[in-house]
Simulated assay, not measured.
Amino acid sequence: MQFRGVRGAITIKEDTETEVLQATDRLFREMIEANEIEPEQVASVFISVTDDVTNAFPARAMRAIDGWSYVPVMCMKEMSVPNALQKCIRVMMHVNTRKGQREIQHIYLEKAVSLRPDLVKKTNHD
């Protein structure tokens, strides 16, 4: 087993509790499915948000997923950089896995695809 970082990010249109939680839930579920992650494999999760995301703790979405309530998670503010992507939720999941670095699927959704277009996987819908 190796210790790997699994990245993900998503943007929201409006800073509402419902949208923050729904977007974070979608992001987590896609990260989990794409990388076949079980909660027991996860050492910790860091979630950062931009200054304009203030109406909910995104960690609540992860804790609501069956089996994930004991995974350590921490929310924090993203650096405020001029012209940076706004209304963005970023995730760094620290996972024990047999996958190599190049096998990890990092998930970027909505406008967050602009953060790492080189890592965005093409789908049949693209």
Rank of each mutant, 00 (worst) to 15 (best):
G8L: 11
G8M: 14
A9G: 02
I12H: 05
I12F: 05
K13P: 02
K13G: 15
T16V: 08
T18W: 08
T18K: 12
V20P: 01
L21W: 12
L21V: 15
Q22C: 05
A23W: 01
T24G: 00
L27I: 14
M31E: 06
I32Y: 02
E33M: 08
A34S: 15
A34Y: 12
A34L: 08
E36C: 05
I37R: 08
I37L: 10
E38C: 09
Q41A: 15
V42H: 13
S44Y: 01
I47E: 00
I47L: 13
S48T: 13
T50N: 03
D52C: 06
D52I: 08
D52K: 07
V53L: 07
T54M: 06
N55F: 04
P58N: 06
A59C: 10
M62P: 03
R63C: 07
R63Q: 08
A64H: 02
V71H: 08
P72M: 11
M76P: 00
E78H: 02
V81A: 02
P82V: 10
N83E: 11
N83K: 11
N83G: 04
A84K: 14
K87V: 03
C88I: 01
I89K: 10
M92S: 07
V95P: 00
N96F: 07
T97C: 04
G100C: 01
G100P: 01
R102I: 04
E103T: 07
Q105G: 10
H106R: 02
I107M: 13
Y108K: 10
L109D: 05
E110M: 10
A112H: 04
V113S: 09
S114H: 12
L115P: 06
P117C: 15
D118L: 06
D118I: 02
L119Q: 09
K121E: 14
